[in-house]
């Protein structure tokens, strides 16, 4: 009976496993293989795909543009995750309180989630266009600026920061915030009211309640959320590619965009795979770290 039960279970998950294997695992392994061979579309017919070991990795890491891109990706991910978490925690607290119009506000907060990143990018490209930006017009009307802010094209930098990078991060946060808010709101609603009441009896302030009750209770959910946001940030593509294409002067280029450019603009599938391999390693490391912590919790 137990055997039949297992068989039934395997049968039920088989289609999903097959699809995952065919569309997820196989391409991933194939891409990893390509990162260890020469796979140049312009030479593959003549020279095939000889094994080159780590040469592709050496080549991408010798490219200053890739190193800058790697650095950009880390900065982009840290900023986007931090801002999403910060605003997410704040908004989810606001949406968790009982007041008139809460439902409408919850719906409004979710709106950016319904906008696909490609569409969001197009909308924000217009909103942040130097000469046509309504934001610039508004800032000028209020007398806050005299010359237009070049939201997506200013190449001035302050350390690792630039206006285009901050603009792209803002769009990413705008688009990804609802996901974090829904996640955190669900977690907040599952915290027993009695814990807050006990804290109140002990004379805890609002901040202390947040620090000693809310945050510890949210920790498991925050761990999942941070992992998902970091993985999403490291593999982010659409917003950067559509809004700036990595420019100006590579300031907003991130690894997924770099990979795309190597493959489809320069016909170097091997270098694209090596670059993707770096993303894979980074996300893999984070996933393993997360899984280990989860397993420890279970044990």
């Amino acid at each position: 009976m137990t055997r039949q039960k297992y068989l039934f279970c395997y049968l039920m998950v088989a289609p999903a496993m097959l699809i995952t294997a065919a569309l997820g695992i196989y391409p991933m392994l194939f891409s990893l293989w390509m990162s260890f061979v020469e796979y140049d579309l312009l030479r593959v017919n003549e020279f095939g795909t000889p094994f080159v070991g780590l040469d592709n990795y050496v080549e991408v890491f010798s490219d200053p543009r890739f190193v800058q891109t790697l650095f950009n990706t880390i900065i982009f991910t840290i900023l986007a995750v931090a801002a999403t978490l910060g605003f997410g925690l704040l908004l989810s607290q606001v949406l968790n309180i009982n007041y008139r119009g809460r439902t409408a506000l919850r719906m409004l907060v979710c709106v950016p989630w319904f906008v696909p990143p490609a569409v969001a990018s197009a909308i924000w490209m217009w909103l942040l266009n130097t000469d046509r930006s309504p934001i610039n017009f508004l800032l000028q009307d209020f007398g806050l600026i005299t010359s237009n802010v070049r939201w997506l094209t200013d190449s001035a930098t302050w350390g690792p920061f630039s206006i285009p990078m901050m603009s792209i991060v803002a769009v990413r946060v705008w688009n990804g915030l609802p996901f974090a808010v829904i996640f955190l709101l669900a977690a907040l609603q599952s915290i027993p009211r009695s814990l807050y009441e006990a804290a109140e009896v002990d004379g805890a302030s609002l901040l202390q309640k947040f620090w000693y009750v809310t945050l510890p209770m949210l920790r498991p959910v925050l761990a999942i959320l941070i992992t998902l946001l970091v993985i999403g940030g490291l593999g982010s593509f659409e917003i950067n590619y559509i809004m700036t294409g990595g420019g100006p002067q590579n300031l907003t280029n991130i690894m997924a965009v770099y990979s795309y450019q190597q493959a489809f603009s320069f016909f170097r599938f091997d270098l694209a795979s090596a670059s993707s391999g770096v993303i894979f390693l980074m996300t893999g490391f984070i996933s393993i770290f997360y899984l280990r912590s989860q397993l420890k919790g279970v044990a």
Partner: peptide, 14 residues
Amino acid sequence: SAVWNAIASPEPGA
């Protein structure tokens, strides 16, 4: 040249 469109690509790095 077969590589022309990579040389003249509209992407940074070309």
